[in-house]
Amino acid sequence: MHYWLLFLALLGFTPPAAQAADLMAFWDQPRHGGNSFNRLPPDQAYFDALRAYGATWVRVSYDKWRPADRDFLLGNADGYHGLPASDLATLRSVLDRAHRAGLKVVIAPLSLPGMRWSQNNKGTFDDRLWQDKTYWAQAAAFWRDVARALKDHPAVAAYNLVNEPAPEKCSDLPEHASPERMQRWYAREQGGARDLPALYRQLTAAIREEDAVTPIMVDSGWYAAADAFTYWPAPLPDDRVLYSVHMYEPYAATSAPNMARRQPLAYPGAVPFAGQLQQWDGQRVAQYLQAPLNWADTMNVPRSRLVVGEFGCMRRLSGCRQYLEDVLGVLDQHRLHWAFYSFREDSWDGMDYELGTAKVPWRYWQAIDQGLADPLPRQATPAFEPIRKRLATDQ
Rank of each mutant, 00 (worst) to 15 (best):
R39G: 01
L40V: 03
L40F: 05
P41D: 11
P42C: 01
D43M: 06
Q44N: 09
Y46L: 05
Y46E: 03
F47Q: 09
F47E: 07
L50H: 12
R51G: 04
R51Q: 12
A52F: 04
A52Q: 14
A52P: 03
A52R: 08
Y53L: 15
A55P: 00
A55I: 02
A55T: 01
A55F: 03
A55N: 02
T56P: 00
T56E: 14
T56C: 08
T56Q: 15
V58M: 11
V58I: 15
V58G: 01
V58H: 03
R59L: 12
V60L: 15
V60M: 09
S61Q: 11
D63W: 08
K64S: 09
A68R: 11
D69S: 15
R70Q: 14
D71N: 10
D71G: 02
L73A: 02
L74N: 00
L74H: 04
L74Q: 02
G75W: 01
N76C: 11
N76D: 15
N76T: 08
N76V: 05
D78L: 10
D78N: 15
D78G: 15
D78M: 02
G79P: 00
Y80Q: 07
Y80M: 11
H81W: 03
H81P: 01
H81M: 08
L83Q: 09
P84F: 11
P84A: 12
P84G: 07
P84Q: 10
P84S: 12
A85P: 04
S86K: 08
D87F: 07
L88Y: 06
A89Y: 03
A89E: 07
A89H: 06
T90S: 05
T90K: 06
L91C: 07
L91Q: 04
R92Y: 10
R92W: 03
S93F: 04
S93K: 14
V94D: 00
L95I: 08
D96M: 06
D96G: 12
R97Q: 13
A98D: 05
H99K: 05
R100G: 06
A101H: 04
G102H: 06
K104M: 09
K104Y: 02
K104P: 00
I107E: 04
A108Y: 03
P109W: 05
L110N: 13
S111P: 06
S111A: 09
L112R: 05
L112M: 13
P113I: 01
G114Q: 07
G114N: 05
M115N: 14
M115F: 14
M115R: 15
M115Y: 14
R116D: 07
R116C: 09
R116P: 00
W117A: 12
N120L: 13
N120V: 08
N120T: 09
N120F: 08
N121I: 02
K122L: 13
G123V: 05
T124G: 04
F125E: 13
D126T: 02
D126P: 08
R128C: 01
R128V: 10
W130S: 02
K133M: 13
K133G: 03
Y135N: 00
Y135S: 01
W136S: 03
W136N: 04
W136H: 06
W136M: 04
W136I: 07
A137N: 12
A137L: 12
A137V: 12
A139T: 11
A139I: 10
A140N: 07
A140D: 08
A140Y: 05
A141M: 11
W143P: 00
R144S: 14
R144M: 03
A147M: 09
